[in-house]
């Protein structure tokens, strides 16, 4: 399975492996800059070290006036007040849903937004891809065949993943 596919799968599972080159505005929202997909060796750029600094975005820095800066903070505060209701709704949803996708879907390698899929769909998808290739692949093993992932206990799921990995390794030999 190549890196792009793995990144796409991670995105579909609701996990981000990308570093965004657009700076983030107040309220945690990204601005209009297109998120940039960083491939395998560069999953690193989004990772924040204990004593590091965030990776810069694409723009050079330039000063704005003190007044403009104060105005922007004021805007943030006003937006905050306006979105309080939304936050309440979000809080409620969060309690209701066990799996919370962080910050919405991550972009796919072609830049399009990927709609998160369920665990079952992901399991099916991985299995399809594996059987398409007709041979065992290096890397993450196939998921339990046929049975719905959600009906498995954690232990059982882990056991089956391990079994698949062992088979995969054997097939490679």
């Amino acid at each position: 399975m190549n890196a792009k596919l793995k990144i796409a799968l991670l995105s579909m599972l609701g996990f981000s492996t990308v570093a965004c080159c657009g700076s983030k505005k107040a309220g945690g929202k990204k601005d209009d800059a297109q998120p940039q997909i960083i491939e395998s060796d560069s999953i690193n750029t989004g990772i924040i070290l204990m004593y590091g600094v965030p990776f810069p975005d694409g723009r050079p820095a330039s000063p704005i006036s003190e007044e403009e800066a104060a105005k922007r903070v004021e805007e943030i505060r006003t937006n905050e007040a306006a979105t309080e209701d939304n936050v309440e709704v979000q809080k409620k949803e969060e309690n209701e849903e066990e799996i919370t996708i962080q910050r919405g879907p991550a972009p796919a390698p072609d830049g399009t937004l990927v709609t998160p899929i369920t665990e079952e769909e992901a399991a099916k998808l991985i299995e399809e891809m594996e059987s398409d290739k007709g041979k065992a692949q290096h890397g993450p093993a196939r998921l339990p065949d046929g049975s719905a992932a959600s009906t498995l206990s954690e232990e059982e799921a882990a056991k089956r993943v391990a079994e698949m990995e062992a088979k995969s390794e054997q097939a490679q030999k």
Partner: peptide
């Protein structure tokens, strides 16, 4: 660790291996 997370971690693990290699 839920199943979704285990799958994600396994995928990420192999990306990490590539990152180490490079």
């Amino acid at each position: 660790l839920g199943l979704r997370k285990q799958i994600g971690l396994k995928l990420f693990n192999s990306l990490y291996d590539t990152a180490v290699e490079r």
